[in-house]
């Protein structure tokens, strides 16, 4: 790709790649089949600044180094597969535009863009981490409707106000950006983490659900909501804009009002 575009710029017609900029991506690489140590590798690419970090990763994987490993499924900010640490902040690679995170001078990025796997989870290869502990915490808060009595013959109705009560926490896509930005989770993975608490909140405050007490009891324990230090990293990291710390505080409040 590089050679033909270079020749074109010398012609009289407006170049097809005038809008492209040169940006360096500094990517944290790890391959247990080659070395025990992770290392930083720089890739310099020409890319449209209005493209996303995920497009840059694709370009690197497809054109420069096929061994670069990362997760992505829908590539449009819904599946939650491509959470990674970009320039030191947890974000979705498919929702982060290059122009928003790089300073440009004469069409060249002033600083490299760093891309790392999310922290607090075992790195399996390059940007891929082991999500099992994360989903274990999710399963432990019982993220499903719990009811008593017979099944109703029609749908369970709910007022608009009751739906609004937990609307914010229904937006979670389980990308782990919040949990892997939490300093308590970094040092102690037994903590449920913001994502699990958000998904517990989604059912605790659902008027149709009757398992709130069970979930609150789980979150009342040593690894539950009381380990939250209100650092607000989770709220900053959430690519869906969920007020995560607020949701955790609401669970604390529910526990206090129920126990006293």
């Amino acid at each position: 790709m590089a050679t033909p575009t270079l020749e074109k710029t010398s012609g009289t017609a407006p170049s097809a790649d005038e809008h492209l900029v040169t940006v360096t991506f500094r990517i944290r690489r790890f391959n247990p089949e080659e070395a025990a140590e992770a290392f930083w590798q720089d890739f310099e690419i020409r890319i449209d600044p209005k493209e996303r970090v995920l497009d840059a990763l694709h370009q690197i994987k497809w054109e420069l180094d096929g061994t670069l490993t990362f997760r992505r499924s829908c590539a449009h900010g819904i599946c939650g597969s491509d959470a990674m640490r970009i320039n030191g902040k947890n974000r979705l690679a498919c929702k982060t535009l290059i122009k928003d995170i790089v300073g440009l001078k004469n069409g060249v990025g002033t600083k490299p863009i760093s891309v790392e796997p999310i922290k607090g989870l075992t790195v399996l290869k390059d940007l891929v981490v082991d999500m099992d502990p994360f989903f274990q915490a999710y399963r432990d808060v019982m993220p499903f409707l719990i009811t008593k009595g017979n099944e109703p013959t029609r749908e369970r109705l709910q007022s608009a106000a009751d739906r609004e009560r937990f609307d914010d926490t229904t937006k979670c896509i389980l990308c782990a950006a919040c949990t892997s930005s939490c300093p308590v989770f970094w040092s102690d993975g037994q903590y449920f983490g913001p994502a699990a608490i958000v998904n517990a909140h989604r059912f605790i405050f659902d008027s149709r659900d009757e398992g709130a007490e069970q979930r609150l009891e789980i979150l009342n324990d040593r690894d539950g909501v009381w380990r939250c230090r209100t650092v607000f990293n989770c709220t900053d990291a959430c690519p869906r804009g969920i007020e995560v710390t607020k949701a955790i505080q609401e669970v604390k409040q529910a526990l206090i009002t129920r126990r006293f």
Binding site: N31, E34, F39, W40, Q41, D42, F43, E44, R46, L64
Partner: peptide
């Protein structure tokens, strides 16, 4: 233009 620069050498072949 498109080039990969290795900053660290992963030279452990074991």
């Amino acid at each position: 233009m498109n080039k990969a620069i290795e900053t660290t050498d992963p030279a452990d072949a074991t």
